[in-house]
Amino acid sequence: METVLAVTVGVLVAATVYLMLSRNLVKFVFGLMLLSNAANLTIFSAGGLIRGEPPLVPEGSYVPDGVVANALPQALILTAIVISFGLLAFALVLAYRAYQELGTVDTDEMRIAEPRPEPRTPAPAGKGTAA
C-alpha cells in the first residue's frame, strides 16, 4: 500500500512540475492543487498505514482496545485540506482578477509592477545613470 501511495505522490509531483513550468497562470494554479494533494498523501503515508480499528475508547476505559488507526495524520490532513481550500480559492480569484485587469494569463507578460528597463538614453551631462 505504501508503494502505491509513494508512486501516486511521485506522479502527482511530476505532473505539478510540468504544469508549473508553464507560463500560463491557470495551469500554475492547477499544479498547485495537485501539489497540495501530493502533500496530503505524503503526510498520510508517512504517518504509517496500518489496518486498524477506528481509534475509539470503549466506555469505562481510558485507552482503546487492540490495534487502532493513528488519528493524528488524518487530523493534520483535514486541517491542511481546509487551509489549502481557502488558499486555492484565493489563488483562483486572484488569477481571474489579474486576467481582468492585466488582460493576460501569461506570467511573462505581467510586467506592470516590474517594467522592463527603458532603452538607454544619453545621460544629461554631469549625471551618471545606473540603467
Partner: peptide, 26 residues
Amino acid sequence: LDGAVKYVALNLISTVLFLSAIGLLY
C-alpha cells in the same frame, strides 16, 4: 494584482513544501 500573482504563487509553494516536510518529520 501583478505583484500579488508572484507573491502568492511562490509563497504557496513554500507552504506546501513546509507541510510535506512536517509530514515526513512526523
